[in-house]
Each structure stands twice: as structure tokens, then as C-alpha cells.
Design a protein around this nucleic acid. Structure first.
Lengths: 334, 334
DNA sequence: TTGAAAGCGCTAACAC
DNA sequence: GTGTTAGCGCTTTCAA
């Protein structure tokens, strides 16, 4: 059974194909009589326009490519939500591609998106293969890099200093008077690495560079991993007074494992997390954290992209530091 | 600056356009000499094929549409992860559309996906507008409905009985000897509604239909909402012996609020959640829950769709009940 | 306001 | 193994 095309509709309505096309795209430009006839024919035939043909002919795709390293993380879910909200409402389709924390996959994703002639690319992170970077620089479309601050942005960069955030969290613990401060992390992607750099910098600044305690395991952050890392640390005899976790999930897990092993939080051990996830405020004890602006990042990225498309010009290079917040709650208020 | 096309590459390599096309799609069918020349030209020009043109010419899009009611929920994140994993590896692009729990938006999403000539549609839920249903029934592509069991599947249906799951959770509490059992829920989407139906059915079966306790508020499930709902219930004087929450997040929030108000879990109040999220096992006390098969649902949906595309035929109607599990942990082991 | 002609960039089908 | 021809189904001119 052949698919219904514009011509079929035109024939049934007794008009030319271009008139049908106009009725569908700018109905105001067609007289009411024809419009009604066309609408009726469309409905009768159950016509659905072929987007590939439309895209080819108009060279507009009304689609925007978004690359994230994982779909398995609330952080990106919130960010994607914000992007979707703004872009879909503006009539764009969002193509989400998951690079699985691999720069090679990211490069492939970029190629696929360029092949689709997306009208902009929004990409989490600032580390790309050389070739990927070239492709993005050469492409005459808006490119937004998010979540980190790049020393050399491709085009638009909306982010925060992960290193400074890591330093801030650690400094907060130092200011509470703790010296034995542990750092807990899962996979060391670029952002986690920067936070760890911040931890090391703060410890060194306090003359404690010889006394760092690291618990790390190559798997995705999760509550279970937090428990496991604390257990591991405890069993090998490390007994920190405070813990900085790269992620609130780890922090929650660590906190629960603390209690299981008879430590009070914050009485015996203070804990600070990262991202200020929804549960941090109502955990008990409530969890101190670094608040990151996932939603705002997505919103702003979408806004910038829409403005650029509107102006039909690659926007000027720009870097926006959205910053972060230190949220002090019970878990570090011993 | 004009975009590079296949013809440009062909001219530079001194071959016909179709040869370039072949090198890109089935390199084995081209002699090595030409292949190398073409590859070089592709690289030199930075050529990226136009997918819209390819899709139009071949009438294959290698893309699959996925509709979910929200992106703001781990449940769907895990499901999407599974879908992506299987489909992307098989060379398909996944187009995710968010219907925001609206049947109208869902209908629009279906139209948009059909317009793109996706090769299959995978949709969470079994409730659609009449027109949306018609479109899906008429479309000559595989359609998978997930997460619920439909009395009248459009094509393939992979799910579980939400009602039975709700009944099972409630029955578990009844069997522990509790009578004052509360039901906590956020937005009453179809699935939450079915779980509540299950709760009512179980209560009625125990002769307790007059003693149901419901705490509900129209917002998305979250830990904070769980706290709020328990607080509300407690303040209006309802004092349940056990609580069934439609979601583990609610359960975690309720558990924390219990403790804040001096109730022991499970000593004074037993709690069971839903979905068996990652943190349930390592919460303290560990959280009883109904385990749902999000990942398996995604995997199986992808598998069915790929098989159908492979066979290039709309698959036979089929219903698969993936079931669920009752996971008993400390929070209901008083 | 409406239509005719041409073409977007690729691939299927067929020839050589 | 390689090329020629003829579209895929729309939209962009431009003319009426």
C-alpha cells in the first residue's frame, strides 16, 4: 500500500500541490474556500507529510542535536527536561544522543547530527576529539558546550568551574576544623576529576597534601556505591572526620553506611555531597551539598540557540559562568 | 558557503556519484583503488552526507520513535537507557518525545513521528486518544505499548498488571497483620490509579473498605512529597500502622518524616514502596518494594521491534506480561 | 491568491 | 565493479 503524498491530496481537493503545501505551512496565505477543501482532503486521506522531503527541499530541519554522556543520571535528566521544554515549545525537535562517556562515540554522534543538518548542537562537556572539535568549529551552526568552563570555547559555553566547586566543598570542611577529609568518587570523568583536583588544591592549601584519603571505584555513582566505598575505606582502617562525595547519591550511601557501622552524622563524621539533588534537603540528617544549576543550564542553552537561529547567524563566541552554591545543612553542622 | 555534496566528492575523486554512495554504504562492493580515492576526497572536503536526502531516496530512515510521559523520572531514564543501548547498537536512531502525561501531546508526537517515517513506535502506556489509536493501527509499522497490560493491544504489548502489583503490596501489609493501611501517591496518572485500585481491592477483600486512608497531592513523586504527605496525614490525625507508597521516592520521604516525628520504622509504622529503585536495598532500614522490570521492558521492546524490522513486516499482535516481584526488606519486617 | 517549473541530494534499478 | 537514468516528495522561485 503506497503512502499518501501531497499530490494525492492535491488531486482529491482539485488544487495544485503547492497549494496543499501552503495550506499546511501558512494557511493564512490561502483563500478560505481552498483551505477548507484541502483540509477535508487531508483528513479524508489521513495524509501525513513526509518530513525528509520537506527537509530536503527547504533545507530547514527544525531539529536540534543534544549530546549527553549518559541517560542514566538525574543530572542530565533535569538538563534534558529543561532543553526539551524550551525547544519543543519553540517548534523544534530535540535529537538526544548518548555518548556513553566516550569521545569516539561523541565524534560519531556529532557526525550523525551534522548529517541530519540539525540547526544547532548542544553538547555536555568541553573535551572532544580533535576531529570532533574541527567539525564543530567549521560547521556554520550554533554550538553550545555546557557544565564546564572551557579555556577555549568552540562557540558558546555555559558552565561552572568544577574545580572551584570541589575546592569550595573541601574548604567548607576545613573551615569546620576537620583535617582528615576523604574524597569519594565513582568513575572519574572530566567533571569528577576536576572536583578531585579542587579537593587536592584545597588540601594542599591547608598544608595537608600528605593526608588526603581517596576512595574510588570505576562505576557509576549510586547510593549502593557510596555505601560500598565507605565500607571499603572503613575496613582498610581509614577513619576520616569528614567526607566530600562527588555526588549526592554517594553521599547518601556513605551516610547510611556510617550509621550502620555506628558512626553518628554529623557527630562523628561530617558529609558533604554534590549537585544538591532533590532528596538532599529532606534526608535525615539533611545533606550539605554544592548546588549546581542543571535546569538553568538547559534553559539558557536553549535560549541562546533559539536566538541564534532566529538571527540566522552563528552567534558570537561567549562564555557564561553560571556558578554554583554551597548549601550548608545538618550533615556538616556538628 | 555551499554545503559539500556527493557530487562534489565524486568530481574530486573522478568517479560517478553512485560510486561515492556505495563506498559510504557498502564499501565491500567497490574496488580498493576507487575506494581509497573516494575516502580521500571525503576527508579532504569534510563531506557529511545529507540524511534527509538519503531517507527520501531510500525510504528508510533507520530511526525509531519512543514516546514517554516524562523525562523527569528515573523509571523512564532506565527504560530509555535500555532502548538506546539495543537500538543504537543495531544502527538505529532513537527519537525520544515527551508527552508530558497529556494524550493530546501524545497524539501530536505520534503524528510527528509518523511524518518522519520512523520505522517503529514504542510508547509507554496504553491510553491514547481515539485518533492516535487509529493512526497507530493503520500505520504499517510495529507498535509496542509498554508498562501496562492492555485489554486490546494495538500490536505488541509488553507490561505488567499495575493493579495486581498494588494489590500484592497491600496484601503483603495485610498479611503482616496491619489493618490501618494508608496509600500515598502523587499525580494520579493511569499507572498510579491502577495501583490505587489494587489497594482498594485488597482492602475491600479484607473487609476494610471503610477504613482506607489516602494521602494524595497533584505533583510529581519525590522524596520531598513523601515527607509532606506523611506530615499532612499525621497532622490531620490519621495514624496508620502501615503505608503503601506508589513510588520509592515517596516511601523514602515518608520514612524520613516518620522518624523526624518520633515513629520507628518498622517498629511503629511499616512502609512499602514501588519500583525497587537502586537506593531501596541500601536505605536504612532497607525498603520493601515492588520490583518492576524497566530495563527488561526496554530491552524486550527493542528486541521485538528489531525482529519485526528485520522481517520487514508488521509483527503479529502479542501480549507479554513481564510481571513484577515483591521484595520484602526491613521496612516491613517489624 | 494560485500555479508551473525546477531542483534539494541522494539511491534503486537497470545497464554495461 | 561501475555508470546512467530516473525518481523519492516536498518547497523555492518566478510568473500569471
Amino acid at each position: 500500500m503506497r503512502r499518501i503524498t501531497l499530490d494525492d491530496v492535491a488531486r482529491l481537493a482539485g488544487v495544485s500541490p503547492i497549494t496543499v503545501s501552503r495550506v499546511l505551512r501558512k494557511p493564512a496565505a490561502v483563500s478560505e474556500g481552498l483551505r477548507l477543501r484541502v483540509d477535508a482532503a487531508v483528513r479524508e486521506l489521513g495524509y501525513v507529510p513526509n518530513l525528509a522531503a520537506s527537509r530536503l527541499a527547504s533545507s530547514r530541519t527544525h531539529s536540534i542535536g543534544v549530546i549527553v554522556p549518559t541517560l542514566y543520571n538525574v543530572i542530565f535528566a533535569e538538563y534534558l527536561f529543561a532543553l526539551h521544554e524550551a525547544l519543543v515549545d519553540a517548534g523544534f525537535q530535540v535529537i538526544v544522543v548518548n555518548s556513553r562517556y566516550s569521545e569516539t562515540e561523541e565524534e560519531n554522534a556529532i557526525k550523525a547530527l551534522l548529517g541530519q543538518r540539525v540547526e544547532a548542537i548542544i553538547i555536555a562537556g568541553i573535551h572532544h576529539t580533535l576531529h570532533a572539535r574541527q567539525l564543530l568549529v567549521q560547521a556554520s551552526l550554533p554550538v553550545v558546550e555546557t557544565f564546564e568552563l572551557s579555556p577555549d570555547p568552540i562557540n558558546i559555553n555555559i558552565g561552572m568551574s568544577q574545580e572551584l566547586a570541589g575546592r569550595t566543598a573541601t574548604t567548607h570542611l576545613l573551615e569546620r576544623g576537620f583535617q582528615k577529609i576523604a574524597f569519594l568518587t565513582g568513575n572519574l570523568d572530566h567533571r569528577a576529576q576536576s572536583r578531585m583536583d579542587g579537593y587536592h588544591a584545597a588540601m594542599e592549601g591547608a598544608g595537608l597534601s600528605g593526608r588526603t584519603i581517596i576512595a574510588q571505584r570505576a562505576s557509576a555513582s549510586s547510593v549502593a556505591l557510596g555505601s560500598a566505598l565507605f565500607a571499603e575505606m572503613n575496613e582498610r582502617g581509614d577513619s576520616p572526620e569528614a567526607i566530600f562525595c562527588t555526588d549526592d547519591n554517594l553521599a547518601l550511601g556513605a551516610m547510611q553506611e556510617c550509621r550502620k557501622r555506628g558512626f553518628r552524622v554529623p557527630g562523628d563524621i561530617s558529609i558533604i555531597g554534590f549537585h544538591d539533588l532533590e532528596f538532599a534537603a529532606c534526608a535525615s540528617p539533611s545533606l550539605s551539598s554544592i548546588a549546581t544549576r542543571r535546569y538553568e543550564t538547559g534553559k539558557l542553552a536553549a535560549k541562546k540557540v533559539l536566538a541564534a537561529i532566529e538571527a540566522s547567524a552563528k552567534p558570537a563566541d561567549e562564555q557564561i559562568d553560571l556558578g554554583f552554591g554551597l548549601v550548608v545543612r545538618e550533615s556538616t553542622s556538628g
